[in-house]
């Protein structure tokens, strides 16, 4: 346990700092932007796709291949769908001339 914490101490620091960055970033958001912001954040956690690519790339047996493949498809859906939907929402906010 101690060994695990020590070997990951850098990433644990990063984790703690990012928690505070996340909190600071969202201060005072106008309510109009709640939905697009949630949707944009939704796309960003699609970064989980990187893990899916890694397990897919290293897959050695059928089970890992199948699960990895499904994970890549789902992760991509999250990323691509998330960003496109957010863009569509925000496109509508532009002021008309």
């Amino acid at each position: 346990m101690l060994e695990f914490i020590n070997s990951n101490i850098e990433i644990i620091y990063l984790l703690l700092l990012m928690i505070f960055v996340g909190i600071e970033l969202i201060e005072k958001v106008p309510s109009v932007l709640h939905t697009p912001l949630m949707s944009g954040a939704n796309a960003i956690h699609g970064v989980v796709i990187i893990g899916a690519i890694i397990i897919m790339g290293q897959a050695e047996n059928t089970l890992a291949t199948i699960l990895g493949f499904i994970a890549v498809v789902l992760g991509t859906l999250n990323v691509v769908g998330g960003f496109v939907v957010t863009d569509r929402m925000l496109e509508m906010f532009k002021k008309k001339k």
């Binding site: 505070f20 996340g22 909190i23 970033l25 958001v29 954040a41 956690h45």
Partner: peptide, 10 residues
């Protein structure tokens, strides 16, 4: 983590 904490605040 950004989404985790920002999402919670949101």
């Amino acid at each position: 983590i950004l989404v985790g904490s920002a999402g919670t605040i949101l």
